[in-house]
Amino acid sequence: MKHAIYIFALLLSLGIQAQTALYNSGNIRIHNEGQIGFHTNLINNASFDQNLGLAGFYGSGMISVSGAFMPVFFDTEIANDQGVMLNTGMSVSSNTNFIAGNFVTPRQQQDVYFNFLQDAFYVGESNLSKVDGYVTINNEQNFIFPVGDSEQLRSLTLNSTGTNSFAKCAYYRESPTNPTTFPESFDPTKKPRTMGDISEVEFWHLEGSVSSSIQISWNERSNIAALTEDVAKIIPVGWSISGRSWVNLGAASVVGDLSQGFLVSDNFVPDDYAVITFASEATAKELLTLDNYLVTPNGDGVNDALYIEELELSNDDTISIFNRQGQKVYEEDNYTNGFTGYSNVDNLVINRGAGLPNGVYFYVIAMKDLKLNYQGFLYLEH
C-alpha cells in the first residue's frame, strides 16, 4: 500500500504575526510511490526537486505556494474548488491531474508559471480545473496549453516545426485595446486595410522561438458575431512587435459557426508577436472608399490610365464615365484599366481621335456581384 502523508497545518511565527503554512527549509522529500497532501500554504525556501510519488492540493480554502525556490513535483493533482495560487512557479515532471479548482498565476508577474518539464502531461482539464494564468513547456514540439480564465478553459494548441526549448502561454479575458493586467495596449487602428474588426473580448499571449501553427477556439463569450457575419472571414491576428501593428497570421482552416468553432493558423514565429486574437477580413464595403482620380495620359508611366485597385475584388463590375453635360463618354464591363482619355461609346463627341477634352468627369461604378455602387470624380489632363 502506498504511504501517505497528509499535512494539515504547521503554525509559523513570521514577525509578530502567525500564519498557517508548511515551511520547507530542505528537509522534505517525496519518495517513490509516496504521497503528500497539502491542505495548507506551502512556503518553499529550499531545494525541493528530487521528488517522486504524488503531491496533491486539497481542501476547501485557497492554498498559496510561495518562497524563494520553485518546487518540482513528479505527479501532482488539484482537488480544491478555491484553487492554488502560485506566487512562485511550480514544475511537474510527470502527470498533472486536474480534478477541481485552478492553479492560478499572477498575470502581472509573467515569470511565475506552471511549468511542464520535458515529456510531462496532464489529464482532466475542464472549465472547472485548469491553469488560470501562465503555462510553460520545455523541450516539446507540440503541446496543448490548458489555459483559461477563472470561468472557462480556453486552450491553445501549439504545433511547431521543431522542438521548443521553452514556450509560454496565457489566456486573457480582456480587450487588447485596453487590457487591465497586460503591460501594453494595442491600437486597433494600426492594421492593414484588408483587416476588419479586431476582438475586444479576449487574447492569448504566446512566446516561442520556433515557427509554429496554432489552434484556438471561440464560443459564445467570444462574440464573434460582432466581428463578422461570415465564419469564413474569421482570421487569427497578432500584434507585430517590430512593425507595431496588427498582422493577419493566416487561417489554414476555419470550422464552426458564429457561436462556436475553431481555426488553425498558418505558420509564424510566436516571439514576433506580443498577443494573438481573432479578427475578420475586411468586407468589400469596408475596403472600398473610392477616391477622386487624376488621369494624365502623356506616356510618362504615371496616371496614364484610370486605375481603380478595388475593382479587382469584383468579378462582375461596370464603370461608366460622363462629361459635365451628363453625356456618357466611356463604358466598360469588368473594367481592366482601359480609360486613357478617349471615348468608346457612340455619342456626339467631337474630334474623337484627339481624345476627350481636359476637365472634370463623373464616374459611376456598379459592382453587381457585391451589390455595391459608387460614384465620384476624375480629372483628365492630356
Rank of each mutant, 00 (worst) to 15 (best):
P71C: 02
M70K: 04
A79N: 15
L348P: 02
N323G: 02
V360Y: 09
F114D: 01
L10I: 06
G101D: 02
A282F: 13
E184H: 08
L227W: 01
K371W: 06
Y113V: 02
D81P: 09
K233N: 07
S25C: 05
G37I: 04
L258A: 12
L117M: 15
G53D: 03
V254S: 09
A232M: 07
C169I: 00
V131F: 03
V364I: 13
A46T: 10
Q118E: 11
N45F: 02
D111E: 12
T157P: 05
V147W: 00
G341S: 01
V349Y: 07
W246V: 07
V329E: 00
N292C: 05
V65T: 01
P71M: 10
T180K: 07
R244N: 15
A354C: 08
F377L: 13
L14N: 13
Y361P: 08
E140Y: 02
L287T: 05
F103C: 03
F145H: 01
I28E: 04
L14P: 03
I321G: 03
N178I: 09
A354G: 11
V72E: 10
S280A: 15
Q110A: 08
E125V: 11
A282E: 13
S94G: 06
D346G: 12
A68L: 11
P179M: 13
A274Q: 10
T283N: 08
Y293D: 10
N178P: 01
Q17F: 09
E77V: 05
Q19A: 13
Y23E: 05
N219A: 14
G250M: 07
E281P: 04
H31M: 07
L258W: 05
F262E: 11
A274G: 06
D49T: 11
T96A: 10
N303Y: 06
K285G: 07
A55Y: 13
S160Q: 04
S265Q: 04
L156I: 14
G26I: 15
A100L: 15
I30L: 14
S129E: 08
I99N: 02
A252N: 14
K285C: 03
A46I: 05
S129G: 04
K190V: 09
D132S: 11
T157N: 10
A366W: 02
I214S: 03
N178D: 13
M62G: 01
K328C: 09
G301W: 13
G250Q: 02
E140T: 01
V345Y: 00
C169T: 00
Q19L: 11
I144V: 14
N127H: 08
G133F: 02
L288A: 08
A225F: 05
M62A: 11
S91H: 02
H31A: 11
D132W: 06
N344L: 12
S259Y: 08
V210W: 01
I365W: 08
H382R: 15
N298A: 05
